[in-house]
């Protein structure tokens, strides 16, 4: 009996080794740099985490159905740019649409979501009906969306945002950033969707065994299209928020965010083999990644080296995930 317990303990450690290493790192950094634990830094991390969490939630549906969405980062960028062009100060000299009237913020958000959803819809259709592997389909879409963003913005960087727009990111409620609440609401929504609705059950079923899902009467194509559309909608929201946070946007906004999102999901236990993944796990994955980045910044590690570490973490995360799967055989 004791032996079995110690085996479990070993398993828990080996399956969560990345999380444990990052937590140890956090402890180390907090000792070395006491202001790492300051409220200010935490609000900073939560703001960063919020946007990344929403992107990771979007991509999780694709991953759970053994798909992917490599157009995520570019869609985030396009969303940020569209929002940026529509929410500039009336008196800003470099205004993109000089004669644009003051649009309500919610309308802009809806426009951004609607436009980005078109690309998700195309992704979903290409994957479902043409049976193009999601990796390739969305890789192509990544380039297309980037091109559209270039055409639309003429590669001009955007700035001079209205205060009511940037307030969304900088505003706080009892010292807690609005973004924290927004992310919380999205997390709750996705948890509900994944666990309490037919769509969620169908998603896990398709990821677990697509043919069996088809035989069970699930409309696989429709479910996948919904997943890719929802993903784009979340990327749109993330882009909208990212623009507000940065106070500007350019065609390079969101570049390669999809890779981080995939890594975060994988660290959080979304299996690349499909059918497995929880919202709570995704949150842990995003936190781990953001804490890692923040710790490295606090330790004043050269940015170039930060990329190398992040890349290594992504590979190790997927390797560990696959090891879990292989061990079962």
């Amino acid at each position: 009996m004791n032996k079995a317990k110690s085996l479990d303990f070993k398993k828990v450690i080996s399956e969560n080794i990345l999380i444990i290493i990052v937590l140890l790192m956090v402890v180390l950094v907090s000792i070395l740099k006491p202001n790492f634990l300051s409220l200010n830094n935490f609000s900073n991390i939560s703001v960063n985490t919020a946007v990344r969490f929403i992107i990771a939630l979007g991509i999780s549906g694709c991953l759970i159905t053994k798909g992917n969405d490599l157009s995520a980062g570019r869609t985030v960028g396009l969303g940020a740019c569209i929002a940026g062009t529509l929410l500039q100060k009336p008196d800003y000299s470099g205004k993109f649409f000089p004669n644009l009237p003051q649009l309500p913020i919610w309308l802009v958000l809806l426009i951004v979501i609607a436009i980005c959803c078109i690309f998700g819809f195309i992704n979903g259709c290409v994957v479902s009906f043409w049976k193009v592997p999601p990796f390739i389909a969305t890789l192509g879409m990544q380039t297309i969306v980037y091109g559209i963003c270039l055409v639309y913005t003429k590669a001009v960087p955007l700035g001079g945002y209205r205060k009511d727009y940037t307030d969304i990111a900088s505003g706080k409620f009892f010292g807690v950033p609005y973004l924290f609440f927004i992310a919380f609401v999205f997390g709750l929504f996705m948890w509900f969707l994944y666990n309490k609705t037919r769509h969620g059950k169908y998603m896990y079923a398709i990821g677990g065994n697509e043919v069996a899902a088809e035989v069970s009467g699930i409309n696989v194509s429709r479910t996948k299209i919904k997943i890719y559309v929802l993903a784009s909608a979340l990327f749109a929201v993330a882009g909208f928020l990212l623009g507000a946070k940065a106070g500007g946007a350019s065609v390079n906004t969101g570049l390669s965010y999809e890779l981080e999102a995939i890594a975060e999901c994988t660290i959080g236990g979304v299996s690349t083999n499909g059918g497995v993944g929880k919202v709570s796990g995704i949150l842990v994955g995003v936190l781990v990644f953001e804490l890692l980045k923040s710790s490295m910044q606090f330790l004043k590690i050269d940015t170039s080296w930060q990329y190398i570490v992040q890349g290594a973490v992504i590979i190790v995360a997927v390797a560990l995930d696959l090891r879990k799967y292989l061990a079962k055989k």
Partner: peptide
């Protein structure tokens, strides 16, 4: 190959259709 959802629970496997 085409029947069970291996990584899902009995409950999910029973109720999915």
């Amino acid at each position: 190959g085409t029947g069970i959802f291996g990584v899902l629970s009995i409950a999910d496997n029973v109720s999915i259709a």
